[in-house]
Structure formats: structure tokens, C-alpha cells
Design a protein around this nucleic acid. Structure first.
Lengths: 260, 260
DNA sequence: CGCCACTTTGAATTAGCTCAAATTCCGTGG
DNA sequence: CCACGGAATTTGAGCTAATTCAAAGTGGCG
């Protein structure tokens, strides 16, 4: 199909990754990520002593079109970033958790290009961009951290695009849950149970499908015992085994009739 | 639907943008962008005197999994970035033109996460990341340019996601052409005629649809006189009026029966 | 000239959407 | 504490946009 010649080295690397993830080895990876998040936050407090701002569900930290001069670092809670098109279309383009930065999109244009909306109680650190740049000159490590954060965001956005473009609806929902759980695990939070802070409509918007399709996909995942709804309400989702979500995604991709 | 309360300021800003683009005012914006690209490239030569590398269609400048230590700046030609999933899925996630940087995705992981494939003869400047950082300390303006480039990439990736999630197939193809034409215009290149350096399959992969759907969409655009196929071959597409593409997109969105 | 990859177009199929109705959840006020 | 009402969710049924499968058609290039 796409004929990209690839080095053997790369292929081998990816095969290894796939294998590692099929075993339980990504636990180690999660722990490393968790330590990295903590270290980065520590560096930021030490070097910048940023002002702390508490947010509640629904709060908008910045909105599309606002003049940019500040970056934010999320230290607890979770955020959605909502893109706004000139014609009024709205699109959830990203979800953010502890340790993530908010506002990178504003640097180039001098104005933010999305809304940052808190989905939960939490807090963010307020970091003026010019202050940050100043600090970077005194402490190069800060610059490394900043660039790594931007780079990770670029990589993550592309993974989102890939999910939307290459996965059928059911798999997309499974992948969404897997990513959410992994995000929690990589921050040292419990990931066997997640509380979706979004309605089906929001999830659907983020994943490029309707709310009904999201609901059906979740029902199917529950029927297949890949997830479990907590006793009360359907916003709490138990994920007994994250690996099962990956397997489910793969099963959606391979046209193997599972004969049942 | 998504209930994001928005400031009046932001709404007004966006309305103004929409209006400006409906008139011919984005010509000015293109010129400004074009000057910015040229200025940035000049700064890079002056400060870094980077090694120049000529590439030809099909050349892979870096591949997913390769160790990261170098960024590239494209000065002519065009590139596609192809993401590779562990399970083998491939996805064109980004297109790059003169002035764009390649390789940001590698900073965080220490390895690139996509293939950078030349789609045309062109050349790139080779910039070692550590060298660049060093230069940034001597010349803060370089850092500004670097961050702006990363920020723009984040914004662009989100726009892609929004297109895929919110537009029907025909509109997505129109938007794709519009963006390509705009990218050329913003680099001072002629944009009334573009030579697609991608097969229908690649375009479809990038836009999340099949090659047949791409072909049908292009045929429809030609039937509606929004585009024109150059006499020979169907890779050269004349765009008599870029605005017509935007209008086409909007028409796809509004369920207005165009009565014909 | 003739092959091969790419493209177009048609026809049948289907994944996901729309519309509709029933159900559950949860905050509010009696 | 319970009743009530609105919002969110689930589920079904029919429909449609886009896919799949298939068959020509076209162009570039050795």
C-alpha cells in the first residue's frame, strides 16, 4: 500500500516494542514516565516557583483567540482542549493530565487557537512565557524539559490522527480508554478504574463519531468483558486488564472471524 | 452540543477572521507568512551555516525508530511524514513544505517516531540538535524561531484532526487541496496550479478514506468547476479560485439542498 | 509498442449515522 | 425521605455515506 522502504533496524525496533508491550514490560515504562513527570514538576517549582491556580470542572483557563503570553502546567485534574473553526465547528483535539503543558499552540500566532477547559477539580501552574525563556537561559535543563513536552505533544497528536484514520469505531473507543488508562499509569495514578469526565457526546466528538456509536461501543466492550461498568452510573469504568483493550483493538483490525 | 462558554472577545476575533478570509484579505496574510519563512531561513544560514543535503522523490531522511540527534529544515521540495504503529499500520500524518522543520517528534523519545519521505526533488538543511541548542544561547532569536515552528506544527496537526473528525469525505479532499494551495501561497510559490506528489492511495490514507473515495471527490470537484485537471495527467490540478474550495467545504457542511 | 501502476467509474455491501423511544441518573425542592 | 424533571444514556430500526469488489480506462516509461 504505502511503499515506504524501512530500515531493518527500525522494523526490528518496532517488533521488539510490540513484543515488550504484549508482555507486562510496559509497567516498567509507566514507572519511568511517572518518575519523569515528578522530576519535571520538581524542576519547575525550584526554578520558577510558579503561581498556582485552582480550577473546577468547566473552568476555562484560556480561550481560542485570547492573546498568548502564558503557558500552564497541569498538576492535577484533567483538561480538554477544544479547537474552534472559523465556521463554528468545535472539536476536542486533546486531553491533558498531570504534568502536561497547556498553551503551546499560542506561541506561533501570539494567540491561543483552542479553549482549555477543566473537566475536573485540579490545579495548574501559571508560567509566563517570557519568564520561562529567561529561566531557560539560566538553566538549560528547563529548555530540555520544555522541548520534550512540545515534542511529546506533537507525537501524541499524530497518534490521535492515526487512530481516527485507521481504526473502526469500536477499536477507536477501546484505544481511547487504553490511552486514558495508560496516561494515569504513567503518572503513578491507579489505572484499573477510570472516571470519564466527558459525556458520550464529547467522547464522540473527540473520536470522530456520534454519541450513539460511543455508547454502543462501550456496551460491546462490556459485553466482551473487556471493561466493566462500576455499580453506580456509567461514567466509572473498570479496566481489569489494560492489555485486553489492546487485544480488542487488534481483533477489530484483523478480519479473523472469531467464530462465536 | 459541546457547551464551552466562550468570551465575546474570542467570538468576535473568529468572526473577523472568517470575514477577512471571505474577502481577499488572506493574500496579505500569505505575503506576511512568505516573508517570515524567508527571514527564518536567512537567520538559520547566518547563525548555523547548516550542511545542505539534496534529496529525490522517495528518499528517506530519517525513519521511525532511528536514533534522534538531528533536525532538518526543508528549503525546497515537499515531504510526507509517515507514522508507523506497532502492529504495522502506516499513516501519513503530515505534509511539509519549504521552511518547515522535520524531526521534532524525535526530541522527547530520543528516536524519531515517523518516516520522513521526500515526495519530490528538493533539499534540506541538516541541523544537529545539540548544535542548535548551543546556538540558541548565543542568539535568543533562534529559540523564538524554533518554538514558533514547533507551535505551528502542533496547531496544524490539530487542524488535521478536526478536518478528519468533522468534515465529510468530499469536503476533506477540498480542504486538503485548499491547505496545499495555501501552503504554497504562504511560501511565495504559485498556488493556482499544484502538482500532487501523492497517489490517490496516499491522499486517502492521509485523509482517512479510500483511494476510490478520493478519486470520486476529485471528479466531483472538477464537475462543479471548483478545480480543473491540467490537459495531461491527473496529478496536476488547477485551482482557478482558492476561495471556491472554502465555499465548497461550507456547502458540504450546511445541509442546504442546492437545488440542481 | 506494450507493460504496469495508477486512476476512474459502477454496483453491491456495510459501518456508522439519524431518528425515535425508553430508561437511568442526579440534582432540586417539597 | 421521596417525588419530580431535565439531561445523559441506551437500544432499536431504517437510511446513507463511504467502503469493497470488480472492470475498464489512462499514462508513463523502458
Amino acid at each position: 500500500m504505502l511503499e515506504t522502504i524501512r530500515t531493518d533496524a527500525a522494523r526490528t525496533q518496532f517488533a521488539a516494542d510490540a513484543l515488550a508491550s504484549l508482555r507486562g514490560e510496559d509497567r516498567l515504562e509507566d514507572d519511568r514516565a511517572s518518575r519523569r513527570v515528578a522530576d519535571n514538576l520538581r524542576l519547575l517549582t525550584e526554578r520558577l516557583a510558579p503561581r498556582r491556580r485552582v480550577v473546577h470542572a468547566g473552568d476555562i483557563v484560556f480561550a481560542a483567540g485570547d492573546r498568548f503570553d502564558t503557558l500552564y502546567v497541569l498538576t492535577s485534574g484533567c483538561f480538554k482542549l477544544v479547537n474552534l473553526a472559523a465556521d463554528g465547528r468545535e472539536q476536542v483535539v486533546s486531553l491533558k493530565f498531570r504534568g502536561d503543558w497547556l498553551g503551546f499552540d499560542g506561541i506561533a500566532r501570539g494567540a491561543y487557537s483552542c479553549d482549555a477547559v477543566a473537566m475536573d477539580t485540579g490545579d495548574v501552574w501559571v508560567i509566563r512565557y517570557d519568564t520561562l525563556l529567561g529561566a531557560c537561559f539560566r538553566c538549560p535543563e528547563l529548555l530540555t524539559v520544555l522541548h520534550a513536552a512540545m515534542s511529546r505533544e506533537i507525537g501524541r497528536d499524530r497518534d490521535s490522527l492515526m487512530s481516527v484514520c485507521t481504526l473502526p469505531a469500536d477499536a477507536r473507543v477501546a484505544e481511547f480508554l487504553r490511552h486514558w488508562a495508560q496516561s494515569l499509569a504513567q503518572r503513578g495514578l491507579r489505572s484499573d478504574q477510570i472516571t470519564l469526565r466527558m459525556t458520550r457526546a464529547e467522547i464522540g466528538n473527540y473520536l470522530g463519531m456520534t454519541l450513539e456509536t460511543v455508547s454502543r461501543a462501550l456496551s460491546k466492550l462490556a459485553r466482551d468483558k473487556v471493561i466493566d461498568f462500576a455499580e453506580k452510573g456509567r461514567r466509572d469504568i473498570r479496566i481489569p486488564n489494560v492489555q485486553a483493550l489492546s487485544t480488542f483493538v487488534q481483533r477489530c483490525l484483523s478480519p479473523v472471524p472469531t467464530l462465536q
